[in-house]
């Protein structure tokens, strides 16, 4: 009986020691190595051409697909990821004059046939986007969340965005350039 009692006392001390530890560890800045894998983004190409539009009195638009974007999450965590998209203004230099189409004239969306598609994960939940056509497309300029992962394990996801630029009647005809950036966190 005496032995059992001693064991009981040790368990109690152990229990209280464990509860006391976090309070005294408040100022500790030591770190440990994390074993999680990487979060990655890839594009099928580094440049894109939207095609040509003819300027007109009533305005027009040019629509084209962007290179396919692949997000691979090997972190194996219970946290998802989101990707956002932003664009600079589109500029063209003719002689010494620079003409500009504001980024807010561009919209981006993912047609249902173009994704988001889960390419490697044994899960059925597919990442979501609310921008699925020109009407629901995100207006570029400010960064906005484009695709949100809803799965909890490592996964790989593809999507091919479409960009539509509205050409107002006052736009000077030229070849315009800009930068579209995809950010995954």
């Amino acid at each position: 009986m005496r032995k059992v009692l001693t064991l009981g006392a040790v368990v109690v001390l152990g229990g209280f020691a464990a509860t006391a530890a976090p309070a005294s560890a408040a100022d500790v800045t030591t770190t440990f190595a994390v074993e999680a894998g990487t979060l990655s983004i890839a594009s099928a190409a580094t440049t894109a051409n939207l095609g040509k539009a003819t300027t007109s009195l009533t305005g027009s638009a040019v629509t084209g697909t962007m290179p396919k974007v692949t997000v691979t999450d090997n972190r194996g965590s219970t946290l998802g990821w989101n990707s956002s998209v932003a664009s600079t203004a589109f500029t063209a230099t003719v002689g010494t004059t620079t003409h500009t189409i504001a980024a807010s004239k561009a919209k981006t969306y993912i047609l249902p046939a173009n994704g988001p598609t889960l390419t490697s994960a044994a899960l059925s939940a597919v990442p979501t986007t609310t921008a699925i056509d020109a009407a629901t497309g995100l207006t570029l300029g400010a960064a906005q969340v484009f695709v949100t992962a809803t799965t909890t394990a490592s996964n790989s996801v593809d999507y091919t965005p479409t960009v539509q630029v509205t050409i107002d009647s006052n736009v000077v005809s030229a070849t315009y350039s800009g930068t579209v950036s995809h950010t995954v966190v």
């Binding site: 979060l39 983004i41 051409n49 960009v163 579209v180 950036s181 995809h182």
Partner: peptide
């Protein structure tokens, strides 16, 4: 090249 340049960013 003229046209759209794609920039990719990934972060913590």
């Amino acid at each position: 090249a003229p046209g759209i340049t794609i920039t990719n960013r990934v972060g913590v």
